[in-house]
Amino acid sequence: MFDNKGKFEFNFRTFYIFLSVIVCIFILFGLYLIIKSAEDDSVLVDQTESMTTDTISIEIPTEENIITVDYPSGLDEAVKFDSTIASKYAVLIDLTDNKVIAQRDADKKMYPASMTKIMTLIVAVENMNSLDDKFTMTYEILNPLINADASRAGFEENETITIKDMLYGSILPSGADATVGLAEAICGSEENFVSLMNEKANEMGLHNTHFTNTSGLHDENHYSTALDMAVILNYAIQDDLCREILSTYQYTTSKTKEHPEGILLESTMFSRMYGDEVENVKIEGGKTGYTSEAQHCIASFASKDNKEYIAVAAKEDDKWGSVYDIFDIYEKYLP
């Protein structure tokens, strides 16, 4: 660029070499930017797909979480129970074929008494937030139930208990204090909760069922049928938690100030049977009921030879008579 005398001398060859180097640098830098941009886009797509997948798995329920129970068929063709079955209303259903095996006035209106609490259990489990949520029992809940001589789990005024304790308290000792407590804890009032019970009855396609309370206390407008109660029980045992509670013999509630050792709850059904009284049949669980108008009733589910069955017997004047009816139904009418 400079001659030997220090004067500037333009050299085209050197200039072209310098220019070529600059152009190459710009080209390489441009390629780097293009490659880097493509890698960033790929990462963004992967992250977006991952976010989309997570959202779908959380917000869209899977079919496994949806319980559907079809109404049983074969009522008109079913065998009629003989005179050894004393209950006025009764039905036996094969759950594998979803078919009525035997029945007596199974579609006629009757009062379900505390079998009602099976529907209360279903609605509570499907609408609660957590088993550990707390509720404080009130005088306003307990006093009317005491005056009505309703069965109670034994929770006391101002006692703080969990949803789980009330679920077991509603089924095992048939506690009306637990059912009303669940209703207020979950829906704010028994009236609002009962509306959900009737909505669930419609959703199940029940033919002749209507509820006015959560416990089964007598009301002319609180009714069902043996067949509808069998459908309700079938729905309940498809849910793991409901099935577990309906199959439990004893459960001790959480310790509280009022009950430092908890309350030992015992199933009104299993207190009258072991469940293995019928040869080759295991009676796995269920719910009893009684009011003076409904008389004694029981809804149960059992298994034999890897098949499941439901038997409901209602309006029997002796509590042991309803239990013996269940034994006779499973013994005489199962294939």
Rank of each mutant, 00 (worst) to 15 (best):
M115V: 14
E156S: 14
R104D: 11
K108T: 06
E156A: 15
I161G: 13
R152E: 08
A148W: 01
T162G: 13
A124V: 06
V91Y: 06
D149M: 09
E77R: 08
D165Y: 05
Q103F: 00
G169A: 12
K117C: 04
L121R: 05
D133K: 04
D133T: 05
A102P: 06
R152V: 08
E77F: 07
I101K: 08
D82T: 06
T138K: 09
V100E: 05
L142N: 10
K134W: 00
D149Y: 02
I141C: 08
V125D: 07
I146W: 12
L167Q: 11
F155I: 01
L92R: 05
A176S: 15
I93W: 02
V123C: 13
M119S: 14
A78G: 12
N147G: 04
N129D: 15
D165G: 14
V79E: 14
F81E: 11
V123E: 14
D105T: 05
N98F: 06
G175I: 04
K88C: 02
I163Q: 14
D132L: 11
K80W: 01
K164M: 12
I122G: 11
K164I: 00
S130G: 08
Y89D: 02
F155W: 03
A153P: 01
P173R: 10
V125F: 12
A176H: 01
A176W: 04
A90F: 01
G175F: 03
D97E: 15
L131M: 10
I146H: 11
S83D: 15
D94E: 07
E126H: 08
L121D: 06
E77I: 03
M128A: 10
A106I: 02
T120M: 10
D132R: 09
E159F: 02
V125P: 09
D76N: 13
T116G: 14
M166F: 04
M110G: 06
T162M: 07
M166D: 09
I163L: 14
M128V: 08
F135R: 13
L145M: 05
A176D: 07
V91G: 13
T84I: 06
L121G: 08
E77W: 00
S130F: 07
L142G: 06
I93R: 03
S87C: 10
R104Q: 15
M119Y: 10
A78Y: 06
E140I: 04
